[in-house]
Measured scan of single mutants.
Amino acid sequence: RRRVRAILPYTKVPDTDEISFLKGDMFIVHNELEDGWMWVTNLRTDEQGLIVEDLVEEVG
């Protein structure tokens, strides 16, 4: 499975499927959606939700 790491922190918009995260958080990518969004699991918090790919980098 594809893994990505947050390069910046992010605070979710209330009442959306987004998740908040810290710089350095690792995610497993489940689905890549339109307009650069990804459905992921945050490995630190075990939370699932949407993040935008501009805020993460690939992990080898």
Rank of each mutant, 00 (worst) to 15 (best):
Arg1Tyr: 15
Arg1Leu: 15
Arg1Thr: 13
Arg1Asn: 13
Arg1Val: 15
Arg2Ala: 06
Arg2Asn: 06
Arg2Thr: 07
Arg2Pro: 07
Arg2Trp: 06
Arg2His: 07
Arg2Glu: 05
Arg3Ile: 15
Arg3Leu: 15
Arg3Gly: 05
Arg3Pro: 06
Arg3Met: 15
Arg3Ser: 09
Arg3Cys: 11
Val4Trp: 06
Val4Lys: 05
Val4Pro: 02
Val4Asn: 02
Val4Phe: 09
Val4Ile: 07
Val4Ser: 02
Arg5Asn: 04
Arg5Thr: 07
Arg5Val: 13
Arg5Gly: 03
Arg5Leu: 08
Arg5Cys: 08
Arg5Ile: 13
Ala6Trp: 02
Ala6Met: 01
Ala6Glu: 00
Ala6Asp: 00
Ala6Leu: 01
Ala6Val: 01
Ala6Tyr: 02
Ile7Met: 09
Ile7Gln: 06
Ile7Lys: 12
Ile7Asp: 02
Ile7His: 06
Ile7Gly: 03
Ile7Tyr: 06
Ile7Thr: 09
Leu8Trp: 12
Leu8Lys: 14
Leu8Val: 15
Leu8Phe: 12
Pro9Lys: 08
Pro9Gln: 11
Pro9Val: 06
Pro9Gly: 14
Tyr10Asn: 04
Tyr10Lys: 04
Tyr10Gly: 02
Tyr10Glu: 00
Tyr10Ala: 03
Thr11Leu: 11
Thr11Tyr: 08
Thr11Val: 13
Thr11Arg: 09
Thr11Cys: 08
Lys12Asp: 02
Lys12Ile: 03
Lys12Ser: 09
Lys12Leu: 03
Lys12Phe: 03
Lys12Gln: 07
Lys12Tyr: 03
Val13Trp: 09
Val13Ile: 14
Val13Arg: 15
Val13Tyr: 09
Pro14Asn: 10
Pro14Gln: 10
Pro14Met: 09
Pro14Trp: 07
Asp15Leu: 11
Asp15His: 13
Asp15Arg: 08
Asp15Lys: 09
Asp15Gly: 14
Asp15Ala: 10
Asp15Pro: 03
Thr16Gly: 05
Thr16Pro: 01
Asp17His: 14
Asp17Lys: 13
Asp17Cys: 09
Asp17Thr: 10
Asp17Arg: 14
Asp17Tyr: 12
Asp17Ser: 13
Asp17Ala: 13
Asp17Leu: 15
Asp17Gly: 10
Asp17Glu: 13
Glu18Pro: 02
Glu18Gln: 14
Glu18Tyr: 04
Glu18Ser: 05
Glu18Lys: 04
Glu18Thr: 07
Glu18Met: 07
Ile19Leu: 15
Ile19Glu: 00
Ile19Asn: 01
Ile19Met: 06
Ile19Ala: 02
Ile19Lys: 01
Ile19Val: 08
Ser20Ala: 04
Ser20Asp: 08
Ser20Cys: 04
Ser20Ile: 01
Ser20Pro: 02
Ser20His: 03
Ser20Gly: 05
Phe21Arg: 00
Phe21Trp: 03
Phe21Thr: 02
Phe21Glu: 00
Phe21Asp: 00
Phe21Gly: 00
Phe21Ile: 04
Phe21Met: 05
Leu22Thr: 08
Leu22Met: 12
Leu22Gln: 13
Leu22Glu: 14
Leu22Cys: 07
Leu22Ser: 09
Leu22Lys: 11
Leu22His: 11
Lys23Asn: 07
Lys23Asp: 06
Lys23Tyr: 08
Lys23Leu: 10
Lys23Gly: 07
Lys23Cys: 08
Lys23Ser: 10
Lys23Thr: 11
Gly24Arg: 03
Gly24Met: 04
Gly24Tyr: 07
Gly24His: 07
Gly24Phe: 06
Asp25Cys: 03
Asp25Arg: 00
Asp25Met: 02
Asp25Tyr: 02
Asp25Lys: 00
Asp25Glu: 03
Asp25Gln: 01
Asp25Ser: 01
Asp25Ala: 02
Met26Ser: 07
Met26Thr: 11
Met26Ala: 06
Met26Phe: 11
Phe27Thr: 00
Phe27Gly: 00
Phe27Ile: 03
Phe27Val: 01
Phe27Ala: 01
Phe27Leu: 05
Phe27Gln: 00
Phe27Ser: 00
Ile28Gln: 07
Ile28Asn: 08
Ile28Ala: 08
Ile28Phe: 08
Val29Ile: 09
Val29Arg: 01
Val29Pro: 01
Val29Gly: 00
His30Arg: 06
His30Leu: 15
His30Lys: 05
His30Trp: 15
His30Thr: 06
His30Cys: 09
Asn31Thr: 14
Asn31Phe: 15
Glu32Asp: 12
Glu32Leu: 11
Glu32Tyr: 09
Glu32Gln: 12
Glu32Asn: 11
Glu32Ala: 10
Leu33Met: 11
Leu33Pro: 10
Leu33Lys: 09
Glu34Lys: 13
Glu34Tyr: 11
Glu34Arg: 12
Glu34Val: 12
Glu34Ala: 13
Glu34His: 14
Asp35Ile: 06
Asp35Gln: 11
Asp35Val: 07
Asp35Ala: 12
Asp35Cys: 10
Asp35Leu: 11
Asp35Arg: 10
Asp35Lys: 13
Gly36His: 08
Gly36Pro: 05
Gly36Phe: 04
Gly36Glu: 03
Gly36Gln: 05
Trp37Cys: 07
Trp37Glu: 04
Trp37Tyr: 13
Trp37Ala: 07
Trp37His: 09
Trp37Met: 10
Trp37Phe: 10
Trp37Arg: 10
Met38Val: 06
Met38Gly: 01
Met38Cys: 04
Met38His: 03
Met38Trp: 05
Met38Ala: 04
Trp39Ser: 04
Trp39Tyr: 10
Trp39Thr: 04
Trp39Cys: 08
Trp39Gly: 01
Trp39Ile: 06
Trp39Asn: 05
Trp39Met: 07
Trp39His: 06
Trp39Gln: 05
Trp39Lys: 05
Trp39Asp: 03
Trp39Arg: 06
Val40Thr: 04
Val40Pro: 00
Val40Gln: 00
Val40Ile: 02
Val40Arg: 00
Val40Trp: 01
Val40Ser: 03
Thr41Ser: 08
Thr41Cys: 08
Thr41His: 11
Thr41Trp: 07
Thr41Tyr: 09
Thr41Ile: 08
Asn42Gln: 09
Asn42Ala: 11
Asn42Arg: 04
Asn42Met: 10
Asn42Val: 02
Leu43Asn: 05
Leu43Thr: 10
Leu43Pro: 03
Leu43Ser: 06
Leu43Cys: 09
Leu43His: 04
Arg44Tyr: 05
Arg44Phe: 05
Arg44Trp: 04
Arg44Lys: 05
Arg44Gly: 04
Thr45Cys: 03
Thr45Ala: 03
Thr45His: 01
Thr45Asn: 13
Thr45Lys: 03
Thr45Ile: 02
Asp46Asn: 15
Asp46Met: 15
Asp46Ser: 15
Asp46Glu: 13
Asp46Gln: 14
Asp46Phe: 15
Asp46Gly: 13
Asp46Ala: 12
Glu47Gln: 10
Glu47Gly: 04
Glu47Asn: 05
Glu47Met: 08
Glu47Val: 06
Glu47Thr: 06
Gln48Leu: 09
Gln48Thr: 15
Gln48Asp: 11
Gln48Ser: 12
Gln48Glu: 13
Gln48Asn: 10
Gly49Phe: 02
Gly49Val: 01
Gly49Leu: 01
Gly49His: 01
Gly49Asn: 01
Gly49Asp: 00
Leu50Val: 09
Leu50Pro: 04
Leu50Phe: 09
Leu50Tyr: 09
Leu50Arg: 15
Leu50Lys: 14
Leu50Glu: 05
Leu50Asn: 04
Leu50Trp: 11
Leu50Thr: 10
Ile51Pro: 00
Ile51Ala: 05
Ile51Gln: 01
Ile51Cys: 05
Ile51Asp: 00
Ile51Gly: 00
Val52Lys: 15
Val52Tyr: 15
Val52Trp: 15
Val52Ile: 14
Val52Pro: 15
Val52Gln: 15
Val52Gly: 14
Val52Asp: 15
Val52His: 15
Glu53Met: 14
Glu53Ala: 14
Glu53Val: 14
Glu53His: 13
Glu53Asn: 13
Glu53Tyr: 13
Glu53Pro: 10
Glu53Thr: 14
Glu53Gly: 13
Glu53Leu: 11
Asp54Met: 11
Asp54Trp: 14
Asp54Leu: 12
Asp54Gly: 13
Asp54Thr: 15
Asp54Ser: 13
Asp54Asn: 13
Asp54Ile: 09
Leu55Gln: 10
Leu55Asn: 11
Leu55Asp: 05
Val56Asn: 01
Val56Met: 08
Val56Ala: 05
Val56Gly: 01
Val56Thr: 12
Val56Asp: 00
Val56Lys: 01
Glu57Lys: 06
Glu57Gly: 05
Glu57Arg: 08
Glu58His: 10
Glu58Leu: 09
Glu58Asp: 14
Glu58Lys: 08
Glu58Thr: 11
Glu58Trp: 12
Glu58Val: 10
Val59Arg: 05
Val59Tyr: 11
Val59Phe: 11
Val59Lys: 04
Val59Thr: 09
Val59Glu: 08
Gly60Gln: 14
Gly60Thr: 14
Gly60Glu: 14
Gly60Cys: 13
Gly60Ile: 14
Gly60Trp: 14
